[in-house]
Design a protein around this nucleic acid. Structure first.
Lengths: 366, 366
DNA sequence: TTGTAAGCGTTATCAT
DNA sequence: ATGATAACGCTTACAA
């Protein structure tokens, strides 16, 4: 009669303790399956568990974190959440984190360095135990990340190779991807090929170009300078489409002796399809187009965009697994240095590429 | 000499207290600008602030939450983060939350009811003070949300009208949007129009259809049954494109006396562009196509997809503002009932629609 | 095998 | 105007 819970706010561990007849510490030990729980009688465990269940006890995570100095939280800094590139990566992260007991704390930096720093500080204040950075090409390291890593925060970057800056990174095998793209065109019979390269600033650009060049060397295939353009640096993701369109149109209106075009990424390639069309060149009949990434939009166009797929969900998952490994044994992870993990891309053939037909080039519209 | 911090882990409020010569409580009051700080001497405030600054003091959020019972955290349940529909909404949420002191805790339910429930529980355990649900059409209320709301958790749903289930919602003015779509076609001269309707299950479908019908009534414009199809229920987002393509092709291969097609949403419309093309109907020369949503992919196709834009970023922002209002004065919010806020859509004219030319219909390819 | 007690860093309620 | 002091709910030595 007395001792009833009047202010029945939340059920705490002492409620369970009192109700079950044991002490709070025993309850804690049992419910956490702590090492010492090996010495607790089975019957005791049973009783405690059932009363906890019956009362609907849920531990207070804030009290727990305060005491244990652990948060089971990992930060996910997204440099631009509206970049179609990253949502599948997030999927992979979410999947890999599911069931591990870690909670992702996602922040969108909005392509903005200041916000990036601000949110990073918030994450640190929330005591994240590790950090995943989902970077796009606009991402610029500002030193803050490095300082955090020095202070012992495990960090993995996905989407860009920042291993030279000292960060463990997960990216796609760009060189292989470039080679796969041109190989696909080659196998379709294309020999004279145009290209829109990525921004020079970006290492991905040169890697993919390497792959392309390597494949070309020793084969009867040419990429003439008049058929090559380069995307400007520091472009925001949305302008890439426009730039691709403009450059492709420019190429097409010049020397038209090419039958296929390689875009730096899907947005470039989709832009190129637009530009070529505007220049009166039909895709794929007169010019095949291939991209890189396999963003969702690539499959929604007509014709669908043939592309080199980055295994984004897998990249997210692998990144997460790396981080979890670093969390479980920090010393081993530190000893491993900062390697880059490069994942194998895959050719996704759609309608924008086709076998080379008789007319090797297009002059103008009929 | 003695009393130096040997284990210089984190600077706490007592460090600041000792160093500044005041008590922890005064420091707390000053640094939080609590009501009582009105009675604290200006010089004291100054001293405390500077020493806090000098020591680099940052309050421990976990201790703070434990004590104050507040978390300054709001949950954001995303039903499917890879849905292009939602990332801009997230942008809006992020923007509206920025600087408010609230931290968004985002979870992706992965189109999965179980995960939805699981993550919802996690959010509750993390003591979110409010919840935003970013719903897509697959979202099914399971009763859990309602229970949470009854227990006093402020909830706002964005992307679907769940006001009949008792949830304050923010959506687009579907009826107006439907009317705008057909009006655009009408003004371009189209009179015989095909349509792919949304799933019957979904209230958006009938709303948009209403708008279309209302515009038609009394005008010389017809949508014949042979030119109408309906998307099946319970489609996952990815299949919508395929379904749209199949249905559009089916329509085109039947009675071909139509010059424009309205898709339920952009994915449907993009699919329709594919289907029409496969049926030998050229877009937009022989058939104009219009969608709904304005997902990113709509602008990346060639021709670009004309569509009715949902102001997604704004929807996210308004949703957030609603929630913040509910948080600041719960009683007022409760009294307001559960209205739906409907935001005005906008016509985004791109290349997929054009003025009706002489040939009102297409039979087959030349 | 279980209980006691001391904190984790903060804020709130009193005193003074 | 400022300071003690007691929680908040939990974990973890250490004691029994």
């Amino acid at each position: 009669m007395a001792g009833q819970r009047t202010k029945s706010q939340h059920i705490t561990i002492v409620d369970v303790a009192r109700e079950s007849g044991f002490s709070a510490s025993t309850v804690s030990i049992v419910l956490n399956e702590a090492p010492l729980s090996r010495y607790v009688a089975a019957t005791t465990k049973e009783q405690i568990r059932t009363t906890a269940e019956r009362l609907g006890y849920h531990p207070d995570l804030f009290a727990r974190s305060l005491r244990s100095r652990r948060t089971h939280t990992i930060g996910v800094m997204i440099f631009d959440i509206s970049d179609p590139f990253c949502t599948l990566i997030l999927r992979g992260i979410e999947r890999a984190l599911h069931g591990t007991g870690y909670l992702p704390l996602m922040m969108d930096a909005h392509n903005n360095r200041e916000q990036f720093e601000g949110y990073l500080r918030m994450l640190v204040e929330r005591r994240i135990e590790g950090l995943i950075v989902v970077a796009n090409w606009l991402f610029q390291e500002c030193g803050l990340l490095a300082r955090l890593q020095e202070r012992g925060l495990p960090i993995v970057v996905v989407g860009r190779d920042l291993s030279t800056d000292g960060f463990r990174s997960v990216v796609v095998e760009n060189e292989m991807g470039g080679a796969m793209a041109i190989q696909h065109l080659y196998e379709l019979g294309h020999r004279r090929i145009a290209a829109i390269r990525g921004p020079v600033q970006l290492s991905d650009s040169s890697s993919r170009w390497e792959g392309i060049q390597r494949f070309c060397s020793g084969r009867d295939i040419t990429i003439r300078d008049v058929h090559v353009r380069t995307l400007p640096d520091l472009l925001d993701p949305f302008s890439v489409f426009e730039a691709g369109a403009a450059l492709a149109e420019e190429i097409a209106r010049g020397d038209s002796d090419f039958s296929a075009l390689i875009g730096f990424d899907d947005l470039t390639a989709l832009g190129a399809m637009r530009g070529l069309t505007q220049a009166g060149v039909r895709v794929p009949e007169e010019c095949s187009v291939i991209g890189f990434d396999d963003i969702p939009a690539a499959s929604y166009t007509t014709p669908g965009l043939t592309t080199i797929r980055q295994p984004m969900e897998e990249m997210g998952a692998i990144t997460t697994e790396h981080l979890l490994k670093m969390l479980s044994n920090p010393e081993t992870a530190a000893a491993e240095g900062t390697p880059v993990q490069k994942l194998t891309p895959a050719l996704i053939a759609r309608g924008s590429t086709m076998v080379l037909t008789g007319n090797t080039s297009s002059d103008t519209e009929p």
